[in-house]
Every structure is written in C-alpha cells, then in structure tokens.
Design a protein around this nucleic acid. Structure first.
Length: 565
RNA sequence: GCACCCAUAGCUCAGCUGGAUAGAGCAUCGCCCUUCUAAGGCGAGGGUCUUAGGUUCGAAUCCUAAUGGGUGUACCA
C-alpha cells in the first residue's frame, strides 16, 4: 500500500480547493505521537509568497481536508504544522487487505525498468577476500529489491579474468604441470608461489610475459590452460556464493574478457566522435576541467580498465537495453566511474535517458578502526570468515539441547550468515563500517538475530494456537494503531530504498517493526484466557502480518528466517 | 599540489525534500518472569550535532572558510 501517496493526495486536494498551488505535496511521519501519525510541513514556506500568516493558511487548508476516509483528525500546531491522525477503521481495512494479498501489500511496478546490477566482480587470480563482501551482499540485496518491486533485473558479475597476472599464473600452472583441481585448492597459495617464482627467476618472468602475449593473441593451448584456471577459480567463488546464499550464477558472469572484441570498437567510436587525443604515445580522452586524461589505449596498444568499463556500458545500453545501470563498487573508484559515465554519455555509447549510478560503499574496518586484515597483516579469505561466522553463531545459541544436531547446524548457518549480511546492510553504505563479531551476533539491538527472534516468537504463538486466524482487524489500543501503520508503510520503505539504492532503510524499518511488535506482544496479550475471541483473532492476524513483513523484508536482504530458535 | 568523501551521546549508528524539546542500540544504574520464547519489555542519566561565519521565520541538514580523519590523482584493476 502506497500510504504516503494516499495521504499526499488528500492534502493536495485540500490545497487545490484552497486555491493554493504547490509543486509537490509530501507529508512525513510525525516526529512525536502527540503530533499524530503524519505531519505536513509544507505550509510555512508558502507564507512569504502568499503574504499571509502561515497559521491562517494552515487553518484554511485544514478546514478543507477530507476527514471522512483515511484521515480522522487534522490540527494546526505551532507556526503552521498540520498534524494528521489516521482513522483506525480505515487503517484496519488496509491491514486486512494487506494480509489477504500474496505480496504483503506491495504492488508490482506499473512502470518496470530494465535494471542492470553489476556486483561482486572478484578477481580470478586470487580467492575472494573480505574486500568482495560488501559489493556481493549489497548488490545481491539491490537486485532482490528491484525484482521484487517488478523491475526486470539483470545481474552481472564482472569478474577480472584478463590481464598481466594471468600470464604468470598460466606459466606456473604449466611448470607445475597441474591440471587437476586438487593442487589448486588454495588459490591464494598458488598465486603467492607463482609471484615468488616471478620475482626470483628472470627466466620464469620472461616466460610469463610471453604467455600474456600468447593468451591475448589467441593461442589455443594457452587459452585452454587459461580457461581451465578460470573455471577452477570460478568454482571457488561459487562455493562462497553458495555459503552466502547469494543468487549469482554462471549465467550472470560477464567477464572482462567478454568485452575484448568491443575494445577496439570503443577506441574507434571515440575517435569518430573526436574525443580522442594522443598524448605521450597513449590514446586518451581529456575531460574538461581535469588535468589528467582517461587513457583508453596504452602506448603499447594494450587496453585498460576504463576501456573495458566503457565497453560494458556500451553493451549494457545497446544489447541489454538498460534504463538503469547500478555499479556496486568500492567508493575509491568514484572518480573512475564519474569519468567513464561522462565519456559514455558524451560519446553516444549510452543513451541519454539511461541512469548510470555508482553505488559506492566504504571500507570494512576492524574493531580498532583499521582496515580489516589477518593478524599477520594478510587479507582475510571470505570463505574462512563465513565459516567462522557459522561456528560463532552455533556457540551463541542459548539452548542447544532444544535442537537436533542437524537443526543446530542449519540454525547456525542461518544466524551466522544472516548476522554478517545484516551488519553490512544495516549501515549507510557510503560510510566505512566496523566489523565486530560480538555486535553482529548480539541478541540485542538492530541485528538480524533480533528480527529472527521476533519471527520465531510469532511462529511460537501459532504453534500454540491451532485454530483459524481471523480476517478482521480491530484497532483498540495505541500500540495496535502504531504497529498497524508501521506495517502499512512497508511499500513506501521499499520504494524509497529502491530509489536511493539504499538497503539500510529497510533494516531501519524492520527494526522498528520488530520493536513495535515486541511492545505490542508485551502489552496486548493474545492467547490469554481473558481475551475475547474477536480481539484474539485480530491480534493473531496482526502478529501474522508482522511475521510476513519481517520474512519478506529479510528475504530481500537475502536473510533467512527460522521457526524456532 | 589538486580533487572527492567523512565528522551527531563514552562506543556503534539513525536522522527522508531545511521544520516543533536531535533519536536508537551498546555500555552504566533502577524495575518487570508460578503468566503466549526474559535472546524480551519499562524507566533514568548521558549532546556547544568538530569550529567560525553566512542564507532563512526556522539549520545536524544548504553555502563559505578553518581543523581533524580517509581516499583518489597518466599508460595496474
């Protein structure tokens, strides 16, 4: 239910009747319970142009607001705030409708977009490490969110499978005559050993460089080795995706090498449009107002990542016909994306109407506020981090005796992985974030476990109660009123999170819903004997809807729920 | 050097287009379980929103500058 839009319309009608023109009416949630459910602050800025006392204007408008439907009461307060109370009967009806629908009251977009979500993007030369976590988690959530709202989503995993280090790896692969996966179990070690050989032996280094040339010129034998290496490396990634319950598959892979054919075309296209200049032997695009150019072809003829990104932008616009392209990539690449976005638009690689967004995020820090590393300063392998999360989650379960060993393992996975994801998603993505095991696995505060616990608590009620659940909602207490409105806001929240590509708005909301439910549950007994049947039915229905909102919300975040903790 | 980002309670963070007395959680201190999962709830204390100017009826939010921190900056990705 688009709650805010509905109220906006009612206010807009009153303004129209009062012959006041406003570009956009936008109510906000009331800042305090005394101020009602929503408030409209848009009168005060009008005072100057209308040359009238804002309070008087507000009085006029208030008199014209329809209070027979959604709104039960309006009041002018302070210098000209309009406080709005929603009609509990109307709210109850909307909650009933929300309960009946398949999609927790969320409409499928009538104007679906073709959205590309570019995320994860691991480098095939190494194993995935913590640096890939945020992109993978945030990107997957955004893809889930957009598709739940009805957009047509294409996930793209822009894996790094091309470049000089592959010559080194292939040379080492051949030298070791490794063809089976067995010896490649630890990709990280393999990379390190190859690098060591490269640094130590000039002969080996020469061979490695030779391999780069061979791969790039399409030598069949080398390409086969390269392909083999990529396959194995990709399997490592898929293992991580599996553990993380991230929906990326092989079909989503559009590797760097996928764009090879387009690279010379990008250069000639830029040449045609006159953007290209040769400087110090390299083919460059100089952007207005910037000293250093964007190099699209090196002096030796090689291409760079800017070229690949331009090629991918072109492909996504031309072939995939995207309306919106979101790149979920580290904030440090902000300038790079600003540049390639601009070049692609200015030179017709991407349609003017296409929205290009760099969804930047900050670095993952340790508890001391330093970049997250192992004790000896190395990078933390993602797979180890995830395994640790599950182990820690298992230890944190309060009453393990209530579960079978198998249940316990599933539970630990759900809690552990959920905690890692939720901790990441619940923070404004642009700021750096502090990775803290104790905090994320805590039972208290804004964590996934709190949501999962709230859900499990509701499930426990339904285990105890085996009758029918009513379809009539009765809003009789303040907390029922507040909880109901919070539930109705679900769609508003998702729409805004989608617009801003900002998952933390969903977590903030879910935390509010879960907290309200806990209070509701504390104050308004459900199955107690003294509760009359209609009230019991209504409260059961509210609990049910709460569980549906939490489940759906967490599902978008890629987090599972359990019936029992 | 230049450019970009960040600065809110002891700690971790919310704060939507500028709006009423700046909100949560953790930690600290009280209270509530023979009663639906107490992994919960209720309450208390804790703030010159880094600083100084400016715009405005009104600024944590917008503008300018300073300070502190982070990041990027020609042939790696």
């Amino acid at each position: 239910m688009k709650l805010k839009e509905h109220i906006n319309t009612l206010i807009a009608q009153a303004l129209k009747q009062a012959s006041i023109t406003v570009d956009k009416v936008s109510v906000t949630e009331a800042t305090k319970p005394e101020f009602g459910d929503y408030q409209f602050n848009g009168i005060m800025p009008l005072a100057k142009t209308l040359r009238r006392n804002p309070r008087e204007i507000a009085e006029d408008v208030v008199a014209l607001i329809d209070t027979t439907d959604a709104i039960s009461k309006v009041e002018v307060a302070g210098p000209g705030f309009i406080n709005i109370w929603l009609n509990p009967l109307w709210v109850a009806k909307r909650v009933e409708e929300m309960l009946q629908g398949e999609r927790v009251g969320v409409e499928i977009s009538t104007n679906p977009q073709e959205v590309i979500v570019d995320y994860s993007g691991p480098n095939m030369a190494k194993e995935m490490h913590v640096g890939h976590l945020r992109s993978t988690i945030i990107g997957d959530t955004l893809a889930n969110l957009f598709s739940f709202l009805g957009d047509s989503v294409v996930r793209q995993n822009h894996i790094g499978d091309w470049g000089t280090q592959f010559g080194m790896l292939i040379a080492y692969l051949e030298e070791q005559s490794v063809n089976s996966m067995e010896n490649l179990k630890d990709l990280e070690e393999f990379y390190k050993s190859a690098k060591k050989r490269f640094d130590e032996s000039e002969e080996f280094a020469l061979k490695a460089r030779d391999y780069v040339v061979k791969i790039q010129s399409g030598d069949a034998h080398c390409l086969r080795l390269w392909q083999n290496f990529i396959d194995i490396s990709l399997q490592h990634c898929e293992e991580v995706y599996e553990k993380l319950s991230v929906k990326l598959t092989r079909d989503d892979v559009r590797a760097e090498s996928f764009y090879n054919k387009r690279l010379p075309q990008v250069v000639s296209k830029l040449q045609e449009s006159g953007a290209l200049q040769v400087s110090k032997g390299a083919k460059c695009v100089f952007l207005e107002g910037q000293e250093t150019p964007v190099i699209v072809q090196k002096g030796d003829g090689g291409y760079l990542y800017a070229t690949t990104d331009l090629a991918s932008l072109w492909y996504r616009s031309e072939v995939l016909d995207a309306n919106r392209v979101v790149y979920v990539v580290d904030a440090r690449q902000a300038e790079h994306f600003k540049q390639v976005f601009r070049i692609s638009k200015e030179n017709g690689l991407v349609k003017e109407s296409t929205n290009l967004e760099h969804i930047a995020f900050g670095t993952m820090m340790d508890k001391g506020g330093k970049p997250f590393k192992t004790r000896d300063g190395g990078t933390v392998k993602l797979i180890n981090l995830l395994d640790e999360a599950v182990i820690r989650a298992k230890k944190s379960i309060r009453e393990p005796q209530n579960h079978s060993e198998e249940e316990l393992n599933t539970l630990a996975k759900t809690i552990g992985i959920g905690a890692i994801k939720y901790a990441d998603l619940s923070i404004n993505r642009e700021s750096n974030y502090i990775f803290d095991w104790d905090k994320m696995l805590s039972l208290e505060g804004n964590t996934s476990l709190y949501q999962q616990y709230a859900y499990a608590r509701i499930m426990s009620i339904f285990r105890k109660y085996d009758g029918e659940i009513g379809s009539e909602i009765i809003i009789a207490t303040p907390i029922e009123h507040t909880l109901s409105i919070a539930l109705l806001r679900f769609e508003d929240i998702l729409l805004r999170a989608s617009k801003d590509a900002s998952p933390h708005q969903i977590t903030t909301y879910l935390y509010e819903v879960a907290t309200l439910f806990m209070r509701f549950y504390e104050q308004n007994p459900i199955l107690k004997e003294e509760i009359d049947e209609p009230t019991k039915q209504s409260r059961l229905a509210l609990a049910l809807l709460t569980s549906k909102v939490i489940k759906q919300g967490l599902d978008i975040l890629g987090i599972e729920v359990v019936d029992r903790i």
